[in-house]
Structures are given as C-alpha cells and as structure tokens.
Amino acid sequence: MIRPDAPVLLEIRDLHARVEDKAILKGVNLTIRAGEIHAVMGRNGSGKSTLSKVLAGHPAYTVTGGSVTYRGDNLLELDPEQRARIGVFLGFQYPVEIPGVSNLEFLRVATNARRTEQGHEELDTFAFEDLVRERLKVVQMDPAFLDRSVNEGFSGGEKKRNEILQMALLEPLVAILDETDSGLDIDALRIVAGGVNQLANADNATLLITHYQRLLDAITPDYVHVMAAGRILRTGGKELALELEQRGYDWVDQELAALAAEVA
C-alpha cells in the first residue's frame, strides 16, 4: 500500500560495499516507507543477498560508501543484534544449522531481547510457549520442531518456515526476506506467502528478494526493483515483474553497456 505521507522506515543512499577485496554493491539507492511491499529481482550474483546482509550487519561485508538510515537513525553503526532488536529482520537465503542449541530456547531468547528493547516485559517459559504455539499456526509448523536444534536437519522448506516463524515472533518493522520462496513446495509457498501477508500492516514494510513471479502472485508488491552489477537498475510497479518473466534479463546488459558509455 503506497501512501506518500507514510513515514520513511528505511533509506538507502548510494550504498557501496565490498567483501574481502571485491566491490559488490556499487551505489544502491532505495527508500522504503511504512506499509509498502518491495520486491527486488535480478540475476544470480547481482548483489541481492549482499544488500540484505549489509543491512543486517554481517561482519564479512565492509561498507565503503553511502548511508543507510532506519527511522532517521544511522543503521550502519549498530551491531547486528541491535539492528534486530529495533526491528530490522533478515530472513536468510541459506539459514545456518546450529547443532545443540534448542530451537525453542533460541526463539525465546531472541523474542525477549526484542521485547526488552520495546519496553515490554520478558516472557517466562510458560507465557512464551503459549505465544510460540499461537505463532506456529501462521506457518502451520509442527510443534515438534521446537524441540530440535536450530535448523539442524530441517529440510529446505522447513528452514524457510522457521525463518517466517521467527519473523512472526519478532514482529519487525522492516522484514527483508531473501528468497524465502526458493525450495518451497506449492503448499508451503502458499503458507509462507499467507504468513507474510498476515504479518504485513500499515506500520511495517517488507522487502522481498525473489526470482519468481509466483511469489508475487501471492504477495502483491507495490514496487519492483531490478538489481544488476551492484545497483538498482530499474524500478517499476508490479507489471515490471511480469515483463521480466517474459523478457528475461538480456536487456540488462544493454542498459549496463549504455550506462558504462555514459560514464566514459
């Protein structure tokens, strides 16, 4: 839902970042307001996951220029846990397995960290169990997953549902979902999309990274961005995604060439 007067949640300005010695983000600009759903598409390797990890503060990525503000404050100077506590959520493309750490315990500690930041009181084990059981319904997950180690031995689709469960518990203001649709079967896709729709409201915003129209059929984006070579090359409405589905990404090369010529 686009409301020009809605407050800006996330403002990315000319963001540059590298990993080791390789420059990957080369000037990303993006403004996200409350209530909006954005989709970012683009070829493999164009920098989508890099953008999401930079926003979440992954230590392997170094910001070399530009700025990111979250509700007016500098996001980049915060530790990853602080970003999460104030409402920035990243659903990982490849959630890691953490053997030995109980999923339930992990969810509880994370939820309480967010609640403390928001000035709510911490939930004890019982209250939390109630909450988590309720939120499990959003993703139609079996409570048995709570007793296992974080993501350990989860199938691809189960890991993604666990990500959405975390989102449902943390109630972020900006949720970045990196290919949450990949690896899901048709039912799971519907469930995950339903979950995202259910959690979206006028006060928060969602940034979906995806390759497929089928997710955007289920979650209608307000904006579609195409990333290429570390920047956002084009922005449009939901029709842009349909156009991509038909035309592929060949035109990207032409535009990049044109851009390069312009610079030269």
Partner: peptide
C-alpha cells in the same frame, strides 16, 4: 562466523550467542 551472525541477527548479544553455542555443544 555465520552461526554467530545468525543468532546476532535475531537480537541475541555476542556473549550470549557464544555461550549458547558452547552449551549447545
């Protein structure tokens, strides 16, 4: 690093993340 980051990105502080993983181990 990725496991640590995963826990941190859910709001769990560094020390607690390490100690969760050690006790998980």
């Amino acid at each position: 690093e990725d496991q640590l980051f995963y826990l941190q990105s859910r709001g769990i502080g560094f020390e607690e993340a390490v100690s969760m993983m050690v006790s998980g181990f």
